[in-house]
Amino acid sequence: MEVHQASQRRACSALDVDRPTVRYKSRRDDDTGLRGAMKTVAKERRRFGYRWLQVMVERQGWQVNHKKFRRIYREEKLQVRRRGDRKRALGTAGPRRFRAAGL
């Protein structure tokens, strides 16, 4: 609009974009306090999933919808990491013996 000195209506029609989409301003809070509370609890309780984490955060006084909590949980990458397999000593398992069929 500034470069070509065009109105918003003309610029949106040239780009085939709806004007309300261009004018949209989000009213969502940034939830910095909640995100901080979630991170501190997740750091203390590393093996807790989002459900237990929400219980712990609610005990601190936060009231949060479970869908919003789950969305923030994913955005902050607080997922519980999967545990790896147990380490086993190399060479301890001998060769497998198969039984003959019918014996």
Rank of each mutant, 00 (worst) to 15 (best):
L15N: 03
A6K: 10
E58W: 05
V17H: 07
L34S: 08
L103V: 12
R10T: 09
R71F: 02
E58R: 15
K39D: 03
G94N: 07
R82T: 13
Y73S: 05
G94T: 06
A14W: 08
A93C: 03
Q8K: 11
T21Y: 14
F98I: 10
D18S: 15
K39C: 06
E75Q: 14
G84Y: 04
A89M: 11
R70I: 02
Q8M: 15
T32E: 13
R59G: 10
R83L: 04
V41A: 15
D18M: 07
R19Q: 15
N65T: 01
R74E: 14
G33Y: 07
K67V: 13
G91W: 08
A14Q: 06
S13I: 07
V57N: 00
G61H: 06
G84E: 04
R45H: 13
V17D: 06
M56E: 15
R19N: 04
R45I: 02
A101G: 02
T21P: 03
G36F: 08
V55C: 01
V55Y: 06
V64D: 04
A89C: 09
R99Y: 03
R99V: 07
R35G: 05
N65M: 01
R10P: 00
W52T: 07
R59Q: 12
A11E: 12
D16W: 01
F69S: 01
K43H: 06
S7Y: 05
P20R: 14
Q60G: 08
R82G: 14
R10C: 02
V22F: 13
A6E: 14
E75I: 05
A6M: 15
K77S: 13
V57M: 03
R83F: 02
K77A: 12
R86M: 03
K77E: 11
A89I: 14
R28N: 08
A100I: 12
G33K: 11
Q54R: 15
R47A: 11
V22T: 09
T92L: 12
E2C: 01
R97H: 11
D31T: 00
E2N: 02
G94I: 00
D29A: 10
G102A: 14
E58L: 01
A101C: 02
S26L: 03
E75W: 02
R70P: 00
Y50S: 06
A11S: 10
G94H: 08
V64M: 03
R83Q: 12
G36E: 11
Q5D: 15
A11G: 04
M38T: 05
K43N: 04
Q8E: 15
D18N: 05
Q54E: 11
Q8C: 09
Y73C: 04
F69W: 02
F48C: 11
G94P: 09
R83C: 01
Q60K: 15
T21M: 13
V41E: 15
L90V: 05
T32Q: 13
W62A: 03
A93D: 04
R9S: 10
T21W: 11
A37N: 07
R51V: 13
A6Q: 09
R70Q: 13
G94F: 07
M56T: 00
C12P: 00
